[in-house]
Amino acid sequence: MNSFFNYFADIFSGVKSLLIGMSVTGKYFFSPGQIVTQQYPENRKTLKMYERFKGEVIMPHDANNHHRCTGCAICELNCPNGSIEIVSARIDGPDGKKVRVIDKHIYHLGMCTFCSLCVKTCPENALAFGQEFEHAVFDRSVLTKILNQPGSSIIKGTEE
């Protein structure tokens, strides 16, 4: 008799537990205000990333096409996977001495692991993180970028 009673007690408690669970899902079903899904790519215009978001490494330039990079190659040294290559050149300085300037700051986005070491260790704060995140491309070579813009030069007063 007792086992017969337990049998039905089990069924009832089981069904009750299922109903409790379903009350939770039902609650969400009838309150669409709690929807958290974002409609990407429809919301692309309004989508704003956090300001510290690490999308890619960039070299900010000012309005006169000046950057802060001296070509010291500290970022290249600190990069754990060789994503940065520095090609520097020597040009004649104003006082006749040769000075080192950056020729090409090559950045391989496809290899970068976003460890932040280059941005953090650059003595001139010449690097920063950009907000761009749509990096899918058909050709891998597109991911190799030259960060200093053509014709750019260093901000006066920063050079060594």
Binding site: M49, Y50, R52, F53, K54, T113, F114, C115, S116
Partner: peptide, 12 residues
């Protein structure tokens, strides 16, 4: 995390 560290998953 994204707000503070800049990354969601692999923050370093």
């Amino acid at each position: 995390w994204e707000e503070t560290t800049g990354a969601r998953f692999l923050q370093s």
